[in-house]
Design a protein around this nucleic acid. Structure first.
Length: 888
RNA sequence: GCCGGGGUGGCGAAAUUGGCAGACGCCCAGGACUUAGAAUCCUGUGUCCGUCAAGGACGUGCGGGUUCAAGUCCCGCCUCCGGCACCA
């Protein structure tokens, strides 16, 4: 029997200290740091937890409440694992190089290093304000020589390595030189450039250097690049969004420059395969797979007057349907094949196509353009002569830059054929349908049965590709081939504010700096504005550019700097040993801490940072420098916090330009950091975008006030002693909450962590006002609640802990241990349905027999009413949950 | 166009394997306290019928389906968000 509890209004209670978080929060933070509470120990015997936020670039705007969405949960996790007895690494540093800082510095006529120092100090202040427990003794800054020295060191490791596809790993370049000198490239499958041992041995220094560039994992080549005319720099493919620079928004132009690349494409297969072993959101894995863009098909040679023209196709089963060929405008055969009477038109077309930007080509969309070269190719499967065209819908950068056009089964070829009145031939017939080339309105790119294909007629779709490919190989016409959309990672930036590339150009070719000559330091200069020519501003600094090597050779230093994704591709390793000036990190430390157990940040880095960091990790693994193959075991992306104001029926993003940014500073001033932290967790599921509501923050503030009063307000007088049943219920609620909270923290369900703690608070407040509990019971409840609160509301937990007379610090206590017996339920509510509608709810003891449950269920008055006079067809019984009576 | 992920009260949202839809909080209303307000506390709060009862009908973007039972599974749409975009 439940009794109605009357709770006296607060004014009747004896006075208690008021919850004013602003009075104690800052003081505790100072004390914790002074006492080095969050200083991480080196590798030891304890289990470790490495919990990391994405490397932030500190901006002048500081942190908004949206940014706090990821920093709070990772902090909660870190604090939780410390209390669980783990050795926890939870560090922070600054991705300080790069355009934003440099551009801001140019605009404000100051030095980017100064700006970064100022901005990062502000971030640090804000992190402290909201109680984030970073180990600041491990703070790093990627723009300091102490850091980028090792970025350069890793660059050299890549420079001095090549990918041996026979062993499927990177090896030292010296192993390649030894092999070239003995056997040339004859044993190296798919060598990009082939050479005999004699030819290699006859090479001079410069020739060797240039030849090795075809193999090195860090190499330079002339390349058409994405040129951002506003930021005056080259952008990686990943940094071009809709044909515009991702930061400046300017239309990207084409430009040919000598560029540095990392040969990430060698790792395509491993980057795809190893995704299976890591706990990442599926959509991020999918984005990476799509970005790498693996497709399996065949390469086939078509004979022409200029020699064999190699094409790539994923549909070798449609070879008999090829009615023309198309070359990309940049294809080297265009010049060779164009016949005299077509040359003028071809040249004109190529010139126009090359002048167009990628965007212009794309904007013209599906409207195909192209010209006939006058030349023909021979289809190797049937000896047919088919015309060769040039068209810009074929890209030089994918496959071989040439295609066989099968208009009946490819939509693009179909459009092209219709526009230029080229023949269309059906070679795949769908089941139960008959395609007629003249009447088709679009291509049929799907599976079917092969027709018009000689000996393959009648071959069904499931084996067609495989059979034809095998046949091509037997006949030596073609071969199976895997292609990737993925390109090598371009890292050159013609800017000042980045890691210098440790290479010197001499008359004898490139010379890599010796490791012990690192770092190559950025010169301290007044003017570092970008040049309009595309050269780095470093090129205008003679003291930097002109070098004399130890052997007396004179050279020109490389003036490009590395894009910042180089810095962020290994910073998570540096945190394990951030002050080491002998090596990037101790082997023992890096192998103890890595991989990162939980890595948290926004989804916008899905294909850039996250792919590059995986690549560097694999290279370092191949070279025996680290012992793990993936850097981030568990990845989670936070959802965005949107502005509370709707515009056109939608919530907007927070941005300085829209003037709708809400800062943690103003929220802390009003409600305290603990309430802000709780609200950041409570606002919604971690991964979901959601609008900010300051009223909701008022709610978590009210909750914390109730918790405060629960601990610090004296109990009412003259309350009855709690009976056995009340004690049991109290402990049950407590331990059920503990189980739920631990499960939810591990599952990243922070919103339900808060709601279950709110529910427990409500239970305890009622209990406190209705009975006096034995000290042991009440003490257990209070202590358990406080320890569960410690990671979430660290300031309040410490304040209450101390005021209650406990020894400092609450954050050095063991996390409470869940008692399964106490949490066990004795009864459950059986839902009784009649024809799927709920007609009754009855309390039954756990473990009741089916017969017992039925008896009680049919005893229920309302159930009786619905069953009476009807025939019972069946009864579905789900033990411990539900009974459904099906009647007619 | 292709590939993902969503759509649940006035609002933010919960809901192991299909098993009580709406936990928790906000807002709002009524009440207690107060000279008054703030704060705090109590009660109510999906919609509709019913007497503010008992009880019932409807309800998770729309339309179908599977099932004793569907927010959850299947088919077809609508719509929002993200990614890719002539990838041969």
């Amino acid at each position: 029997m439940e009794t109605q509890v009357t709770i006296p209004p607060s004014h009747e209670r004896t006075s208690a200290p008021k919850y004013v978080p602003q009075d104690f929060e800052a003081g505790w933070m100072q004390k914790w740091e002074a006492d080095e509470l969050y200083k991480t120990a080196p590798a030891d015997e304890r289990p470790k937890a490495y919990i990391l936020d994405f490397f932030p670039y500190p901006s002048g705007d500081g942190l908004s409440v949206g940014h706090c969405r990821n920093y709070v949960p990772t902090d909660v996790l870190s604090r939780y694992f410390r209390m669980k007895g783990y050795n926890v690494l939870h560090p922070m540093g600054w991705d300080a190089f790069g355009l934003p800082a440099e551009n801001a510095a140019i605009k404000m006529k100051t030095n980017p290093a100064k700006l970064i120092a100022q901005y990062s100090a502000n971030y640090k202040r804000q992190f402290r304000l909201i109680g984030i427990s970073f180990d600041w003794s491990r703070e790093i800054n990627s723009s300091t020589p102490e850091y980028y020295r090792w970025t350069q060191w890793i660059f050299l490791k890549l420079y001095h390595a090549w990918y041996d596809s026979r062993e499927n790993r990177a090896r030292s370049i010296s192993t390649l030189e030894t092999e070239l000198s003995a056997n040339g490239t004859q044993n190296i499958p798919n060598a990009r450039v082939e050479i005999s041992a004699d030819a290699w041995n006859a090479f001079n220094k410069k020739q060797r250097s240039e030849f090795l560039s075809n193999f090195r994992l860090a190499y330079r080549k002339p390349s058409v690049v994405n040129w951002d005319p506003v930021d005056k720099t080259v952008l990686a493919n990943e940094e071009v969004v809709d044909g515009r620079g991702w930061r400046s928004g300017a239309l990207v132009e084409k430009k040919v420059l000598q560029q540095w690349f990392f040969r990430i494409t060698e790792y395509s297969e491993r980057l795809i395969n190893d995704l299976d072993a890591i706990d990442w959101p599926e959509h991020i894995k999918l984005m990476q797979r799509n970005w790498i863009g693996k497709s399996v098909g065949a390469e086939v040679d078509f004979q022409t007057d200029a020699g064999a023209l190699r094409i790539f196709t994923t549909r070798p089963d449609t070879l008999w349907g090829a009615t023309f060929m198309v070359l990309a405008p940049e294809h080297p055969y265009v010049e060779k094949l164009a016949t005299a009477d077509h040359k003028a038109r071809v040249n004109q077309y190529v010139k126009e196509a090359k002048a167009k930007t990628e965007v212009e080509r794309a904007e013209e969309g599906k409207d195909k353009t192209g010209v006939f070269t006058g030349a023909y190719a021979t289809n190797p499967v049937n000896g047919e002569k088919i015309p060769i065209w040039v068209a810009d819908y074929v890209m030089m950068s994918y496959g071989t830059g040439a295609i066989m056009a099968v208009p009946a089964h490819d939509q693009r070829d179909f459009e092209f054929a219709r526009k230029f009145h080229l023949p269309i031939r059906v070679v795949i017939q769908p089941e139960g349908e008959s395609l007629n080339a003249d009447e088709m309105e679009r291509a049929f790119p799907h599976d079917g049965v092969m027709v018009n294909s000689g000996i393959f007629d009648g071959t069904s779709a499931d084996v067609a590709v495989e059979n034809v490919t095998r046949w091509l190989e037997e006949k030596s016409i073609g071969a199976k081939r895997v292609n990737y959309k993925f390109r090598d990672w371009g890292i050159s930036r013609q800017r000042y504010w980045g890691t210098p590339i440790p290479i010197v150009h001499t008359d004898d070719g490139e010379v890599a700096m010796a490791e012990n000559n690192l770092p190559i330091e950025l010169p301290n200069v007044d003017s570092y504005e970008p040049t309009a020519t595309g050269e780095s501003p470093l090129a205008n600094i003679p003291e930097f550019v002109n070098v004399t090597l130890p052997d007396g050779t004179r050279g020109r230093r490389e003036t490009d700097t590395m894009g910042t994704f180089a810095c962020s591709s290994w910073y998570f390793m540096r945190f394990t040993d951030p002050r080491n000036d002998q090596e990037p990190f101790q082997t023992k430390e890096v192998n103890y801490w890595l991989p990162v157990d939980t890595y948290v940040g926004g989804a916008e880095h899905a294909v850039m940072h996250l792919l590059y960091a995986r690549f560097w990790t694999k290279v370092l693994y191949d070279l025996g420098i680290v012992s793990f193959i993936e850097p981030f075991q568990r990845l989670r992306n936070q959802g965005m916090i949107l502005s509370p104001q709707m515009k056109d029926g939608k919530y907007e993003k927070m941005s300085k330009s829209k003037g709708n940014v809400i800062t943690p500073d103003e929220m802390v001033e009003q409600f305290g950091a603990d309430a802000l932290r709780a609200y950041e967790m409570f606002i919604s599921d971690f991964t979901v975008a959601t609008p900010w509501q300051t009223d909701g923050l008022a709610g978590t503030h009210r909750w914390l006030t109730r918790v405060w009063n629960l601990f610090l307000e004296p109990a009412r007088e003259n309350l009855p002693q709690a009976n056995e049943e009340q004690i049991k219920l109290l402990r049950r609620a407590l331990h059920q909450t503990l189980r739920k909270v631990e499960g939810d923290i591990n599952a990243f369900a922070f919103n339900t962590v808060i709601s279950s703690l709110m529910t427990l608070t409500n239970v305890l407040v009622k209990a406190k006002d209705s009975a006096t509990y034995p000290d042991a019971v009440w003490g257990e409840a209070m202590k358990t609640l406080l320890l569960m609160l410690a990671p979430i509301a660290p300031f309040m937990a410490e304040e209450i802990w101390t005021r209650s007379g406990n020894a400092y610090s609450v954050h050095q206590q063991k996390y409470p241990v869940y008692d399964a017996d106490a949490a066990k339920e004795e009864t459950f509510t059986l839902i009784v349905q009649v024809n799927g509608k709920v007609r009754g709810k009855i309390e039954l003891p756990v473990g009741v027999s089916e017969e017992g449950a039925k008896e009680k269920a049919f005893d229920d008055a309302n159930v009786k009413k619905w069953v009476e006079g009807k025939t019972i067809a069946s009864v579905v019984y789900v033990p411990g949950r539900l009974m459904n009576v099906v009647v007619k």
